[in-house]
Each structure stands twice: as C-alpha cells, then as structure tokens.
Nucleic acid binder design. Structure first.
Lengths: 259, 259
DNA sequence: CGTTAAGTTGAAGGCGCTCAACCGACGTGG
DNA sequence: CCACGTCGGTTGAGCGCCTTCAACTTAACG
C-alpha cells in the first residue's frame, strides 16, 4: 500500500502505466519512524524531497513562547519538495508511526520529464498552496466549533482522495493537542468543541479513528466547499463523473459518496 | 520604476544582463487599476500569470457569513503564477491604485529557459509559501498586539527587498479594515492595538505611510525573524555581507539598516 | 456641501484562555 | 506483577482578550 502518491496524482491527471511505474520505483532511502520522530533531522532539505509513504506527519513551528503551531499535515502520498533554501524556520514531526522516503533532487527532475507527471506535481503543489490559504480563511473567519468541523471535512476528503476513506470512516492519528495546534486554539477549548460535535452525533472520534456520521450537516456547519482540494479538475472533468452531472458548479462536487 | 521584479529576484540569484532584459521585456497586457478593482475579473487564471508592477493587491475570500479574510498581500514585483485549476475560491483585489501585467503562460515557460531565472522564480514561490506558513504561525501563536507588529515588520522588510523602503519609512496603502482582515481580528480591536504601538512610539502610521520608529524593539515584541523572507541565501551567502559577518546564524541577518 | 469611507471611542458581553486537578491508558522498570 | 511516570483526555473555575453593536468624528471627493 505505498501507492498513495499515484492514487493522488491520478485524480487530477491521466497517468500512463509508464508514469505509474516510474512513480512507484522512485529512488531514495526508505525509512520507518515512530510518532514524535523528526524525519528531517540531519537531512539537507535542499537536496531531497520528502515523500510520505505511510503514516501522518506535520510541519510545525515551536515559538519562543512555548506554543506550537502546526501549519500543515502530510498524509500518505503527500510530499515536500526540496526547497531552494535550507531553513524556513519550520520543522517536521511524525504524528503516527509511518514510512518516509527521501527522494534525491535529481530523481524529481528526471520524473518531470514526463509531461503528465510534471503537470500532476504542479497541480499537487497548487492544491497544497490553496489548502494553506483555506486554513487561513478557516482560522480567520470561523468560530472554534465550525473550525474543527471544517478541518475534519478536509482531512476526510484528503483521505478519500487516496482511497483511505472507508465509507465514512478513516484513520485519524491526531491527538487533541495536535488538532488544537493546527486550529489556533487551546487544547481545552478544542476538547469542548469536539464534545459538541460528538453530542450532535455529527462525528465520532475514538481510538485514532474518525467516523463521519452526518456528512451533509457537518459540511453545512463548517461551510465546507471542497473545491480547493480539486478532486475534479474543471478544465478536464473526469469522464466517469462528468457524464452524469449537469454543467456548472456541480462539476466540482465529488463522486464517491461517503454517507 | 517597473523593475521591482528584477530587484526582488536579484536578491536571491545572480542575474545576467540578458536575464534582466527578458524580465523587463515581458509580453502581456499592462493595465492600470484603482483601489477596489479586481484585476482577475474575466481573466482565465490558468492561462496567464499576474505580475504586480505598481501598487498593492490582496488575495482574499469573502465567506458566506460576510466576513472577509485576506490571505496574501501582493507588493510590486510579486506575482501569482497561472494555476492549473480555474478557481481556488479566492479572489484578488487592488488595495491601492496600481499597474498590473497579465503575462501569458508561454512567456513564463520561455523565461524559465534561463536557469538562473527558473531558480529565482522557484525561490520566490518558496518564499511565498513560507510567508503563508508564517502567517499561520503569527495568527496561531501571538496576541493581537504582537501579531500586528509582526505583520508590519514583514511588510517593511518586503518593501526593503524591492528598494521601496526609504530609511525607515515606506508606503502602506492598507486601511485598518485591510489589516484586520489579514490578521484574523476585528477592525475595532486592531485600532486599539495600533494605538498601543503608536503610544509606545514604535511606529507611526498615517497618510498611507508607515514609519518604523524603533525597529529593534518592534521586532522584539513581534518575535520577528526575517529568515523566512530569505534575504540572504544561506547556501549562497551574499559576498557583500558575508565577509563582514561571523559564520552561523548571523548569515541570515539583513545588511541594510533601516534604523 | 452632501455623501461615503475610514478611523475612533464607548459599552456590554461572550468566546476562548489559563491554571489546575483528576482520570484512564499505557509502557517501563523495580 | 505491581508501582510508577507519562501522556492524552476531561472537567471546573475565573477571567481577560476580543467581538459586536453603535454612535460619532474626520477625511476625501464630487
């Protein structure tokens, strides 16, 4: 099950078998980590791209005041391209046990000789950027309750895009501390917001699993619009789906139903 | 004064005269706008890159609840690459009168045939991403007062990087409403935070101008570290500066003093 | 001079924070 | 095997930062 990257990219751009092969045969050291490990420790981020094969990680910053802020979650198939500069003031930490591959920079360049892969990677980066913008909107515009709901919608949808959402249930290795650190709120208050969601029977979180009980209502209170995650390119609508849908906004909606 | 892009890129990567020429001779319609105009209205964002020549703009989202959130400021020399997808749920608005160029996608590809320019553009995008992460940290970790101070430090520094910071003073066409919308706080409270900064004689904002009165103290209360803006690549330290500095962290610090 | 947008000030209240204690699960080591 | 420490989760109390609403002033502009 290390094909999350292929599954993710194939959502946006049609990939040939050759493309899939080269994506599956990337060079670079593959290493397992435990929660709390920092896979970038001692690594030169200008030389290689970090690719999540299994498990979750977070990009975060610890401020001098002792507060931790998570700015991004990395799920299986997500990657962090080598950055031109060495240090952006951020660090990365595993949130669950998982497997990470450090792909050398040259291999990425080689990969991009396939036009489809190059465009798919651009697309992925574009979605990443849009997601960060959406986080700013989420924190800036919504109250704690809706904010949490929105994040859960996003995570479920991202898991869905790599076929790791089973109906309406998926893994969620995050602690409440993690969730609070990514939502700009205290863990105490996050706990209360979570209990409200539970009490409303919208979601159920336990044993590192997330169950979406009422998807429509959850998205409604979250004000969630998955267009920024771009499951279905508007320019190149997926034929499986397009044929069943009226033109316009609906093109952006998801296909799979997870109740 | 339409060379902000060149000045910005040249901070990171050495550009040949040929590079500078092609950057200065980009094709694409050049158009003036007034505050409030939406330069992307009616434009296909998958087909062209928006380049700010003069003035400021903002990328923002209006939520159904009526709240506006600004997720990014665009200063002269900043650009928004054509995105693979059509709509990310964000819109763009001029914050001052200014001049914008819409560069066709092909021209960007041509431009990237110069290795230096390609790397410089990558660098710029990397800084853009790091800046958005820093905004999340800013909003998530700091209280209103420090948050505002941090934003002002960033904006002054960005203006400095395109030679538009004159000593310790630069243009600041933002209204308090704009500032509040980018800092996840109400305009009323922003006004109070601003008055505190003024009362402490750290900054002076009036008549669309920002004056940094006590830079060191301002950065201190903001917890500001300009490394994410990457004035001086650590991998390729600027020789003008490097020779005067001890090795290590200090390499990252700025050269110019703006008191 | 009338209108509109931006800035300022005040009052009231709530959302969310801090601090703190406690519980339960889990892993480790005595 | 049990004691213990640690971590994550839960609950309560108190309070303060920040929001909302509102009125008013000031500035810009036709």
């Amino acid at each position: 099950m290390r094909q999350a990257l292929v599954r993710k990219l194939a959502r946006w751009i049609a990939l040939t078998d050759e493309d899939r092969r080269s994506l599956g045969a990337l060079p670079g050291r593959i290493q397992g980590f435990m929660r709390g490990d920092r896979p970038l420790a001692g690594v030169d981020p200008t030389a290689c791209t970090l690719l999540m094969l299994e498990g979750w990680a977070a990009e975060y910053k610890d401020t001098p005041s002792g507060r931790r802020v998570i700015v991004e979650y990395l799920l299986p198939g997500d990657f962090r391209l080598s950055s031109p500069h060495r240090d952006r003031g951020l660090d990365m930490m595993m949130l669950s046990q998982g497997i990470v591959q450090m792909v050398p920079q040259e291999a990425i360049r080689t990969l991009q000789q396939s036009d489809a892969i190059r465009r798919a990677l651009e697309w992925a980066e574009s979605v990443r950027s849009a997601t960060q913008a959406e986080w700013l909107v989420n924190i800036g515009a919504r109250k704690a309750y809706a904010r949490l709901a929105h994040l859960l919608c996003e995570l479920a949808e991202r898991m869905n895009s790599i076929d790791m959402l089973d109906g309406n249930i998926c893994e969620l290795p995050l602690t409440q501390i993690d969730l609070a650190a990514s939502l700009a709120m205290s863990n105490v208050h996050l706990n209360l917001a979570l209990q409200r969601l539970r009490a409303a029977k919208l979601v159920d979180i336990s044993a590192r699993r997330l169950i979406i009980l009422k998807r429509t209502e959850l998205e409604a209170i979250a004000g969630f619009d998955d267009s920024y995650l771009l499951r279905w390119p508007t320019a190149l609508p997926d034929r499986r789906r397009h044929s069943e849908l009226p033109p316009g906004q609906a093109e952006r909606r998801r296909a799979g139903s997870w109740h």
